[in-house]
Design a protein around this nucleic acid. Structure first.
Length: 804
RNA sequence: GCGGGCGUGGCGAAAUUGGCAAACGCGCAGGACUUAGGAUCCUGUGGGUCUCCCUUGCGGGUUCAACUCCCGCCGCCCGCACCA
């Protein structure tokens, strides 16, 4: 028996496919009638560790989908590239002195070799690299457009500062108070940063989700992250001054229960009212103490809320006119809802605790709870609320909003958890921000014709201790003439974060060589939006949300051709190591795809990763499972070689192959790869027991069906059928319902809903016949025990149930 | 605390969406070939008091029929988390 030898056949067919350009995506001019299909997978960060088996899972899955789609006649774009700016390359440079571009290129070469060895059907003609100046020219161009539309601005903000990486982090990059990359405790530091006004797009980012085919949990997570909240704004005048204070609440119906206002410690009212606050010294000390704590520490000291009363100042309740105290409290978040809340101890848990700790009054204004014991936070009927007493909460909210509006003291207000996006990094290995600071003209954008602003070559990559980027140390790069006035000016030395290049990379695939625009409108219009985007859940609130925002902005300025970038989004489950842990160098449990390919072949690796479990679920690596898949492929190979000369196929084999055809076609589209593959195994098991049934026609169909999963093996076997064409030049087989139809079924006979017997029957068997057959069964007779059936349920083609 | 998901053999899981629970794979046991087996092939494999009964985290309900739908618990995983 001949031997299936992937090490020999896989490279052979990879070369053949490359030479024949089977994966070439046709631009609109050459596409003809074919419908386009843009399939996207997240482009990898080319780390020194090489390709992760998790990459393989996502890429193999999408590869199966696009291979099928091509065979169905779609014009498929399945591209790949490199998200190559980032901290590890820079850290590596600091350690070794090797320039990031050098190590990055080396890593890319390695990744590329690995991806090609997997036989993935990427169109390599469209490969992109975010660190290529020809690419990041357009990343910078997008920044300039944002700047011109006042969507990018500078602001001194407290940033999450990682003392180890010496870098400012976005909120999203801080996990549990620690730096996402190095795990160091993050501290607060005030830095002037570039910001994007993503908050202006908050509503659209929520609303437009409706039109998209994303997994529901992705939509929910994005909505939650944006955190839209409808409530009321109310203005409290500061007694005896011209000053006032805006607060945000979702429970304006409790306004008669307000016993104080509480401000975030960083609220600017303190400095405004300095002269009125009699305990200023103490207050300042308190603010200082809180400032030292990071937001994370503040959050985690939940049980120990602290605060201080501002002595000598009073606020006036805009509805009741009552004079109330003003406090600072560390439980109030400075960046949300104006950093001020009205404290209603009776109807808010936090306020209740705070009031108890500091002896503030607790006044019940909504009936229904026992406020001597705990806060009552439900809606209810108002009490102790002057004219509003007896009114339901919801109604009171509406009335009070109207009243505040009339008095010009507030009204309906909408708040978001989403903050503007900090877009500066104090690092070398990123896209330079194309801005020049002129002493006379201020902030001046680099003229578009001067793009790209190339990263200069440096000797030292160390971040400076001051928080400036290493670029700040290169005088000849920093010092430039102002493009406006020609006077002395300095370049912006901050670079862009990791997300900058990945925000829009999929657009570049549509027209990767264009040096006039980011992409020609014709090509963008043709390919976009992406039809199907698969990637990791961990990117839901980072990359996925931000790239939607950037795309919407580009749509607004006429560059992007649609409202949304990705029509469909799915996610693969994580591939864990054999110990159920995340793979990591330090744990020493990393599975290297090279090793698997070497020992078992790329097809085995691909099929295993799709067979190992439901695609969207995290799953542990199991080398025994890999071996099982290899055994299966061996069986396929040997069966085809043995039975191919046989012209005739049996009826049952035909039926099974058409059933398999139906199942595989469906399962690929719904990403139920594991059951598709088990279907092949069932068929192979049948074939092994019924060899005489298996002939050429059935085998050819099986090879076609298998080709998206095990492309090399399928090609090898297809060529053995005598075909002079590639398996991927064939049409995707359509199953014949008539042939797939079972000729005989097992009719289940139940008595009282329990299976007692089964008989072979025609699928079209009538109720009468089924009943007769059922009652004729000795087993049924035994169970009937001479009793009369009360009722008979007949499900055509399936079962008959006799109820007694 | 809030939001989402999940719970089926020794393990990964499947179940045509309410109709034979455990397909397929792994593991395990026995056998064949073999100097050898950690290669390959064959047979068996949910449990029991085994013609029958029990079994999909636990308890209840709807139904002729429930892994699937409803109610109440328990447990696990993921995301967010003092968002007023």
């Amino acid at each position: 028996m001949a031997n299936y030898n992937p090490e020999e056949i896989e490279p052979k067919w990879q070369n053949y496919w490359r030479e024949n350009k089977f994966y070439h995506a046709k631009d609109p001019a050459e596409a003809g009638e074919a419908e386009k299909f843009f399939a996207l997978v997240e482009f990898p960060y080319p780390s020194g560790e090489g390709l992760h088996v998790g990459h393989c899972r996502s890429y193999s899955a999408m590869d199966a989908i696009v291979r099928k789609r091509r065979m169905e006649g779609w014009n498929v774009l399945y591209p790949i590239g490199w998200d190559a700016f980032g901290l590890p390359a820079e850290n590596f440079a600091i350690k070794t002195g090797i320039h990031p571009s050098v190590s990055t290129q080396k890593n890319i070469d390695n990744f590329k070799r690995q991806l090609k060895r997997l036989g993935l059907s990427f169109d390599w003609e469209r490969e992109i690299n975010t660190t290529d100046p020809k690419y990041y020219k357009w990343t910078q161009w997008i920044f300039l457009q944002l700047f011109k539309k006042d969507m990018a601005y500078q602001s001194k903000v407290p940033v999450n500062w990682c003392p180890k990486c010496l870098i400012g982090l976005a909120n999203e990059e801080v996990i549990g108070g620690k730096c996402e990359r190095c795990g160091e405790q993050v501290v607060r530091k005030e830095l002037k940063q570039w910001m994007f006004r993503i908050t202006r797009y908050a509503d659209r980012l929520i609303e437009d989700l409706e039109k998209l085919d994303y997994l529901e949990k992705i939509k929910i997570q994005q909505k939650e992250w944006i955190g839209r909240s409808e409530g009321t704004e109310a203005v409290f005048k500061i007694d005896g001054t011209e000053e006032s204070l805006k607060i945000f609440t979702t429970r304006i119906d409790t306004i008669f229960g307000v016993t104080a206002l509480v401000l975030a410690p960083e609220h600017n009212l303190v400095s405004i009212l300095e002269n009125n606050i009699s305990n200023l010294e103490e207050v300042k000390k308190y603010i200082e103490k809180v400032r030292e704590k990071t937001e994370f520490e503040r959050v985690n000291l939940e049980k120990e809320r602290t605060g201080i009363k501002l002595e000598g100042v009073w606020a006036v309740n805009p509805i009741s006119g009552d004079k109330i105290e003003i406090w600072l409290g560390d439980y109030v978040i400075g960046s949300y809802g104006g950093g001020a809340v009205m404290m209603v101890p009776a109807h808010d848990r936090r306020d209740y605790d705070f009031a108890q700790k500091y002896g503030l009054a607790i006044k019940e204004v909504v009936k229904g709870g026992e406020i001597s014991k705990e806060a009552f936070t439900d809606y209810g009927v108002l009490t102790n609320s002057e004219g509003f007493s007896g009114m339901a909460s919801k109604e009171a909210i509406e009335k009070l909003q109207e009243l505040l509006k009339e008095k010009e003291m507030g009204g309906i207000s909408i708040q978001y958890k989403l903050r503007d996006w900090i877009f500066s990094r104090q690092h070398y290995w990123g896209e330079p921000i194309p801005i020049i600071h002129c002493e006379k003209c201020g902030v001046v954008p680099v003229p578009e014709e001067q793009l790209p602003v190339e990263l200069p070559f440096v000797e030292k990559y160390q971040p400076t201790k001051t928080g400036e980027s290493p670029l700040a140390a290169i005088d000849e790069w920093v010092n430039v003439k102002c493009p406006k006035c020609g006077g002395p000016a300095k370049r912006e030395t901050d670079t862009m974060p990791n997300w900058a290049g990945s925000n829009w990379y999929y657009m570049r695939y549509c027209d990767p060589q264009n040096d006039q625009t980011l992409g020609s409108l014709e090509k963008l219009k043709y390919w976009l939006p992406v039809d199907w985007y698969n990637g990791g859940m961990e990117h839901t609130t980072l990359h996925l949300l931000y790239s939607r925002f950037i795309y919407k902005f580009l749509f607004d300025i006429g560059v992007a051709p649609s409202l949304e970038p990705y029509q469909k989004r799915t996610s693969q489950g994580m591939v864990l190591s054999y110990d159920g842990q995340k793979m990591s160098k330090s744990r020493g449990n990393v599975i290297n795809p090279d090793d698997i390919i070497k020992e078992y072949g790329a097809d085995t690796l691909r099929v295993y990763e799709l067979f190992m479990g439901p695609f969207d679920q995290a799953i542990s690596w199991n080398i025994q499972g890999v071996k099982g898949v290899r055994r299966f492929l061996d069986k396929v190979y040997n069966l085809v070689l043995e039975r191919l000369p046989n012209e005739e196929s049996g009826k049952q084999a035909q039926r099974l192959i058409h059933q398999l055809n139906r199942r595989v076609s469906q399962n690929i589209e719904t990403m139920k790869f594991n059951t598709a593959i088990s279907g092949f195994m069932e068929f192979i098991n049948f074939a092994a027991d019924n060899k005489e049934e298996i002939g050429r026609e059935v085998l050819e169909r099986m090879i076609l069906l298998l080709s998206p999963f095990a492309p090399h093996l399928a090609e090898e076997l297809w060529q053995k059928t005598g075909s002079r064409e590639s398996v991927f030049q064939q049409k995707w087989p359509i199953f014949d319902p008539a042939l797939a139809q079972e000729q005989k079924i097992n009719l289940i006979i139940q008595v009282n809903g329990k299976m007692r017997d089964k008989i072979e029957a025609d699928p079209e068997i009538s109720e009468e016949e089924a009943k007769a057959a059922a009652l004729a069964s000795p087993k049924v007779q035994n169970w009937l025990n001479n009793k009369e059936p009360k009722k008979i349920i007949f499900v055509k083609g399936r079962l008959i149930n006799i109820v007694i």
